[in-house]
Simulated scan of single mutants.
Amino acid sequence: MTCPRCQSGRIVKNGFTHNHVQNYKCKSCSRQFVLDRKHPPITQATLDLIDKLLLERISLRGIVRVTGVSHRWFFDYLKKKYAEVPQKFEEFSKQEVEERTEKKGGFIVECDEVQTYVQKKQNRWWIWLALDRHTREIVGLHVNQRTEEGVKGLWDSLLTPFVDAECHTDGWKAYRGVVFGALHQVGGTQHMERFNLTLRQRMSRLVRRNLAFSKKLENLIAHLWLFAHHYNRNRRSS
Results as ranks from 00 to 15, higher is better:
Glu99Ile: 09
Val179Asn: 00
Arg10Asn: 15
Asn219Phe: 07
Ala130Leu: 06
Asn196Leu: 08
Phe162Met: 02
Trp125Ala: 07
Lys13Gly: 13
Ile58Cys: 06
Lys38Glu: 13
Arg133Gly: 00
Trp126Ala: 12
Val143Lys: 07
Glu148Gly: 13
Val109Thr: 04
Arg100Leu: 04
Tyr175His: 06
His71Gln: 15
Phe195Tyr: 07
Glu218Val: 13
Ile58Glu: 07
Val114Trp: 02
His191Leu: 02
Phe75Gly: 08
Cys6Tyr: 13
Ile58Pro: 02
Lys215Asn: 09
Val118Glu: 03
Glu149Asp: 08
Glu98Gln: 06
Glu96Gly: 01
Arg208Leu: 10
Arg57Phe: 06
Lys121Asn: 06
His168Gln: 09
Val34Gly: 10
Ser238Trp: 15
Asn196Pro: 03
Gly171Gln: 07
Trp126Cys: 11
Trp172Val: 00
Asn14Pro: 05
Lys173Asp: 12
Tyr117Arg: 11
Gly187Cys: 06
Gly106Pro: 05
Glu84Arg: 12
Pro4Val: 15
Val97Phe: 02
Arg209Cys: 11
Val64Gly: 03
Thr2Asp: 12
Leu54Glu: 10
His168Pro: 04
Gly62His: 07
Arg37Gln: 09
Leu224Ala: 00
Gln7Trp: 15
Asn234Ser: 09
Leu53Cys: 02
Leu78Met: 14
Asn19His: 14
Leu183Gly: 03
Asp170Trp: 00
Gly68Trp: 06
Asn19Lys: 14
Glu99Thr: 14
Lys13His: 13
Phe16Asp: 09
Gln119Asp: 12
Val66Leu: 14
Met192Gly: 03
Val109Arg: 03
Lys52Asn: 09
Tyr77Met: 11
Leu53Arg: 04
Gln87Arg: 15
